[in-house]
Structure formats: structure tokens, C-alpha cells
Design a protein around this nucleic acid. Structure first.
Lengths: 141, 141
DNA sequence: TTAGGTATTGACGTTTACGTTAAAGCTATT
DNA sequence: AATAGCTTTAACGTAAACGTCAATACCTAA
């Protein structure tokens, strides 16, 4: 009861919503182990209530982005790099330029992935077409 | 010299062009170890001239597809699955249906990756925009 | 014929991204 | 008070995709 009170307080001070680790694991179909691992990798920074972790909306959003990145084949390190870009205060002009460079770099990577997708899609479509005509011919028998 | 002769013969019987393992490793910026590893995984089947491997145009094409697949985050097993689809003789109707199902499955995967790319691209573009305005403001100082 | 360059076959090492117990602490309920 | 259910830390295990020797073979140019 004591704990629940404090958690409520916490929740109030963090923009109303807090998620437990199992909330997130269920919502995104991950193990809690994976989520803690992302924390070890520096990708998530949950609030602590005693020993327990609580995740804000911001952390939830980050988790979503992690999953998007993973499906694109980015490593956790690369995803972390993007986050660090996002978090970095562009205080100095030089740093700002550097950040822009990095972003453009990531963007070209994505462009290349788009090309890759189109190539593989085309391969598959051609083959599917072959299968289709095969099917139709067999229908004649 | 003897060997070179035989290799020439080989080359003639395989559609004119044969590549050595280092040819391919240089062209695609891979180690020879990697290429051999793809063979162990069943993704490449080079011709043997004695102990040496020689790659036909078909193998080269497969290597290209492997790299496209890898950049999309597919595992070598998944890539192998696609190849096996491609190679399978759709002799029976049931099998043909199964192949079509698999293809459609891969296609939906690619669609989801397209969505992921768009989402991450949008994130990056927003952030780049922020950087841009920052830069312009600093230009005023 | 001998040194140099390239290829091959093991075999063990490494990194990434978790999985899998294990031991222990809250907390609610019976 | 004891059980069940969720959480934590810690530590070892594992599969994928190669890297990195080491030993050996082959061929070529000097």
C-alpha cells in the first residue's frame, strides 16, 4: 500500500502514465530479459521505484523505435547511436554539423535498404508469376 | 599450365565466365572466409577444379542476392529458404501452393520493413529539420 | 629450385542479442 | 504464516556469422 502510493506520486510527476516491465513485454511481445538487455545497452532508462523499473511514455516510444530498427537489421549499437544523436544538445556549430552528417549517413543507409527491398521484391514477384502460370496450366489437366 | 587449360575448358562449358574466390571477394568487398561460409550454409555451390573453387555467373548473382538479403536483416537461413523456394521444382500442385504461401509470407515481411523504413526516415527527417533551423538561428549571431 | 603469392581445410576465438536457470525480495491473498 | 505471483540481480549458456591463425598445397617468376 505504501509502495502503491509512492508509485502513484511518481506517475503523477511523469506525465500521468507509467508502464511496468511486464506491461511492455506483453504489449510488444518481448521477454523482460530483452527489455533489461536494452537497458544494459543504454537504450532505455526507466525510472526506479525501489528495485522496480517503471517506464514513461518516452521509454515506450523508444522501445518502439528499437523494434523498428531491429527489423531493419540495425544492431543495438547503431540504434543507440541514433538515440544519442537525437539526445545530443547541438550546442556548438561544429557539433551540429557533425550530427547532420551522421543523420545523412543513416538516411543513405535507409535509401539503400529501400533499393534492396525493391530488388528482392522484384525477384519474388517474378517467381510468383512463374508459379501462377504453372498453376493455371495444371488447372487445364 | 595443365591446370589453366582445364580451367579454360571448364569456363567454356559454363557459359563463358568463371570467377575465382578472390575475384568475388574483391568485387563485393568480402573476405574469402565469408564466401566459403556461405557455401557451408548451402547458399553457394561453386564448381571445383581440383581443390579450387570457381564461381559461375549464377553463383555471382546468388552472392549479390545474399548481400541484398543481409542488408535487409535476413539471416542466412532465411536467404537459403528463399533460394530453395526458387530452386524447387513445382511438380505437384500441393507443393506449388505451399511455395506461393511462402513467397507471400516473405512479401509481407518486406512490406513491414518498408513501413519500418518510412517510420525511421520520418523520425530522422524531423530531427534534421530541427538541426537545420538551429543552424539558421546560429547564423544570425 | 626456391621464394612468393594465392587457395584450401580444419579448428578455435569473438561478438551480438538475448535464453535460461538460480537465488532472493516484495506484496497480495488464502 | 504460508503460498503464489511478480520482480530483481547475477551468472552461465547459446546460435549466428564470421575472424583469425596454422598447416598444407599449388603455381609462377626469378
Amino acid at each position: 500500500m505504501q509502495t502503491k502510493q509512492v508509485t502513484k506520486e511518481l506517475s503523477r510527476s511523469y506525465n500521468r502514465k507509467l508502464y511496468s516491465i511486464s506491461d511492455l513485454s506483453q504489449e510488444f511481445d518481448l521477454t523482460t530479459r530483452a527489455i533489461r538487455f536494452y537497458e544494459d545497452a543504454g537504450l532505455l532508462t526507466p525510472v526506479r521505484q525501489g528495485r522496480n523499473r517503471y517506464y514513461t511514455l518516452r521509454e515506450r516510444t523508444r522501445l518502439k523505435l528499437i523494434l523498428h530498427g531491429k527489423r531493419l537489421g540495425f544492431t543495438l549499437n547503431e540504434i543507440g547511436e541514433m538515440f544519442r544523436l537525437y539526445d545530443s544538445k547541438p550546442g556548438e556549430l561544429a557539433q551540429l554539423r557533425h550530427i547532420m552528417d551522421k543523420i545523412n549517413e543513416k538516411m543513405s543507409l535507409l535509401e539503400r535498404q529501400l533499393e534492396d527491398i525493391q530488388i528482392v521484391q522484384q525477384e519474388l514477384q517474378e517467381f510468383r508469376q512463374q508459379c501462377q502460370t504453372q498453376l493455371e496450366q495444371m488447372g487445364d489437366c
